[in-house]
Amino acid sequence: MTSTNTPIIQLSNVGKSYGNISALRDVSLTVRQGEVTCILGDNGAGKSTLISIIAGLISHDQGTYAVDGAPMHFTSPRQALDLGISAVYQTLALVPLLSVWRNFYLGSEIRKGSGIFKRLDVKTMQQTAEREVERMGINIPDLEQPVGTLSGGQRQVVAIARAVHFGARVLILDEPTAALGVTQSGLVLRYIATAAREQGIGVIFITHNPHHAYMVGDHFMVLSRGEVELDTPRADLSLEDLMFHMAGGAGLNALQHELHRGEPTTAGQAA
């Protein structure tokens, strides 16, 4: 339905090495408007490296990374942000002791006045933050309260609302549901779907949870030890397939085989 849209981000054979250790090899990925791309993988599979490259925190050393068709080599997250590529990390890039509205505008403060009297436009920021947060459907009684006092889901939504408000075209969500309960996860997943379908944002959804991924994803990629193990659109994949790959794929089969083989051997010796 939306896959005819133009790609915003296109990675071709991207890789990253630290000395002799290669953290990521040969990853090709396309993010289109209004599409949710799910990236799954075990710990250390290279998910963090991949999103750090896309978000501009680190730069790749193999392959090409193109935004709107133009090859890029980001040296700062700011550059990615300016092109509308915005990451929402597990830490959410929120400062717990700072108030909700200050967090909302952190790094992109609205100012008024000029010269040395240039100051924060507190009223505008408070009102806009309130409007945006309320549109997400969460109720925060006092925007002056520190972000650290919000629930996990609320914090997540504040972080996503912030990214969308500041013109994100591509939203990278790093395990947004990992630390959340069922209800709070539902809130976040619903918002991911809305952001993609209604606001036309390209979403990169990193998760451990194949159920969550399958609920909202249009395209799935499973990483394993820095390489792509599975890369397929939703149409060619069932939840069972995804769970199988997520659980370890071919490696799991081998393990199962090995564990089962143990029994007959001992039985054979006993006989």
Binding site: P77, L94, L106
Partner: peptide, 8 residues
């Protein structure tokens, strides 16, 4: 880290 992530 958060500060760096938002470009400060």
């Amino acid at each position: 880290d958060s500060a760096r992530a938002v470009g400060i």
